[in-house]
Amino acid sequence: MRVRLCFTKGPGVRFISHLDLLRTFERALRRAALPLALTQGYHPRPKLTFASALALGATSEAEYLDVELAAPVPLGEIVRRLNSVLPADIRVSAAGEVPAAAPPLMAIVDTALYELRPLRPLDEGQWERLGSVLAGLLREKSLLVERTTKSGTKQVNLRPLILQAEVSGDKIAMLVRSGSRGNVRPEELLALLGQEPTGWQVHRVGLFIAQDDRLRSPMEEAGVVVDGS
């Protein structure tokens, strides 16, 4: 049984890395005494796949992971058991069953919605200026940023990867490409806006699959969905 979980990552765990989160789920799944399917070999491990790594420091209200169980368990039971053994700031909000042959999460999730809030409040004038700088950026055809990887430095044009971005109220909302086929990091946009990325709280509102001008939730792939709330 392949189960898709949607979960939140709250402020108390925003400083744990993706690898830490993976370990945390492996152990929580064991504490929950769910019948985990294990990999073969000397290092048997539960079969977990995440949709997308969240940057250290960011919070999220909708992250996704698939886990394989060796025997069927009612979805409500899975959510209830996991939430009773997860650290307080991680909550499973929904669970659904996906076909065993469904493509992996990271191959289909390609869009992310973020909200960025300044740690120190900005006044009206500052917000206005930020809004016009952002509007100016979006009029550009090309927004080149440098990325350093193990193999060296390369230039990436962010502009086509930014689907929407706007100042709204006390935050910046940005809908961007996210995943293996193109990715925008919130701190890259902040840097383009002349902001110090560490001065902002990054919150991921959702991860989506873009399809025919529509954004679908990864949970739509799952047949039966149980809400954990």
């Binding site: 108390g12 765990v13 420091g57 650290p87 307080a88 740690l119 560490t198």
Partner: peptide
């Protein structure tokens, strides 16, 4: 907001582990 973003392995200092 200030200290943890500036240090390596900030989860060392959270204190809210399971």
């Amino acid at each position: 907001t200030q200290v943890l973003p500036a240090v390596s392995r900030p989860a060392r200092y959270l204190g809210n582990e399971y």
